[in-house]
Design a protein around this nucleic acid. Sequence first.
DNA 1: ATTAATGTTCAGAA
DNA 2: TTTCTGAACATTAA
Length: 285
Amino acid sequence: MPELPEVETMVRGIRPHVEGRQILSVQACDCPCRPMLIEPNLKTIQARVQGATVEQVRRRAKRVVMDLSTGDAFVIEPRMTGLMLLDEPPSVEHLRVEWTLSGSGEFDRLWYWDRRGLGTLRLLNAMQQEAVLGLSNLGPDALEMTIQNWVAICGATPTPIKVLLLNQKKVAGIGNLYASEILHLARIHPETPARSLKRPQIKRMAEAVQEILETAIRHEGSTLGDGTYRNALNKSGGYQNSHRVYDREDSLCLDCERGKIVRIVQSQRSTFFCRVCQRRTRSSP
DNA sequence: ATTAATGTTCAGAA
DNA sequence: TTTCTGAACATTAA
């Protein structure tokens, strides 16, 4: 679930309650499911974070980063169903990790909850942080992209633009849901080869990225039908009520009120778009 | 019973 | 060498 707006919402939710606090303990919850990936092993993590202070909570792409006073950082990758929570988890069953925080505050615990358990928790030193979070591994954050960045990544590649938007090495933070939303707002057909996008289209796309992601953040992300996504206080997001095309197959396009939303598959993922609003470009397949 | 789901990675093929 | 596809990871709900 979590794409950039959901991860940003998690970070904003926990930040005021976690920054400046000392870590008293980190524990893996004994949940009956298969264990998630934790690196290095928990014993090593516990020894390394003993008494450390959380200096900063931030987002990098779709990851939550907690910078510690020791120079190490927790990097949490929620993948499909991971959540950072301050209290009242959706279920005790899928609690995975529990941090206990020192000092006074509204909350004395922080949890990582993950139903499917595809997410990961890693404690990284400075060098590992650079390797995992740096520009050699992840492209610029979607909200930091310049027009020049967009022109450069669209460059000479025949890759369909929707697929390019999901490539985290080119641009980091956009996921399957928001890629469809962005291209609908920009009125670009998702199968358009990136290299055939013209300047005005690239500009529209760049603006759509900002508009869609910022609005989604303002609405605290999208909680889809299965209700999995929750903010740090276990409340649903609100952006699902503003979706233009995602999961609206066969519904009428809200913009043109003529076209039906269609669903296609690209790179094994669903893409939704309006045939009327998002016409193919000349050299599209 | 089958299928698909907001993400990433890896093996193997092209 | 590079790029793409399919499968895998684990769980749940339609």
